[in-house]
Simulated scan of single mutants.
Amino acid sequence: MKELVEVIAKSLVDCPEDVVVTETEKDNSIVVELRVAQEDMGKVIGKQGRIAKAIRSVVKAAASKDDKKVIVDIVQ
Results as ranks from 00 to 15, higher is better:
6 E>R: 09
6 E>C: 09
7 V>P: 04
30 I>S: 12
74 I>R: 05
76 Q>A: 15
65 K>D: 09
39 E>Q: 14
14 D>E: 15
7 V>H: 03
67 D>T: 00
38 Q>W: 04
75 V>Y: 10
25 E>I: 09
29 S>P: 02
37 A>K: 06
33 E>M: 02
15 C>M: 14
46 G>A: 05
64 S>W: 03
27 D>I: 11
58 V>R: 08
30 I>A: 14
19 V>Q: 12
73 D>M: 10
26 K>M: 11
1 M>D: 06
41 M>K: 14
26 K>S: 14
1 M>W: 07
70 V>D: 05
68 K>S: 11
20 V>A: 11
68 K>V: 12
67 D>E: 08
52 A>W: 04
52 A>K: 00
17 E>S: 13
18 D>C: 04
3 E>C: 01
70 V>P: 04
38 Q>T: 14
29 S>L: 13
75 V>A: 11
71 I>P: 05
20 V>D: 13
24 T>A: 14
59 V>T: 00
33 E>R: 07
69 K>L: 10
32 V>K: 08
15 C>A: 15
63 A>P: 02
65 K>C: 06
53 K>F: 06
57 S>R: 01
49 G>V: 02
43 K>N: 12
5 V>C: 06
10 K>H: 07
18 D>E: 10
11 S>C: 01
71 I>Q: 08
65 K>L: 08
66 D>Y: 05
67 D>P: 08
29 S>N: 13
64 S>L: 01
55 I>D: 06
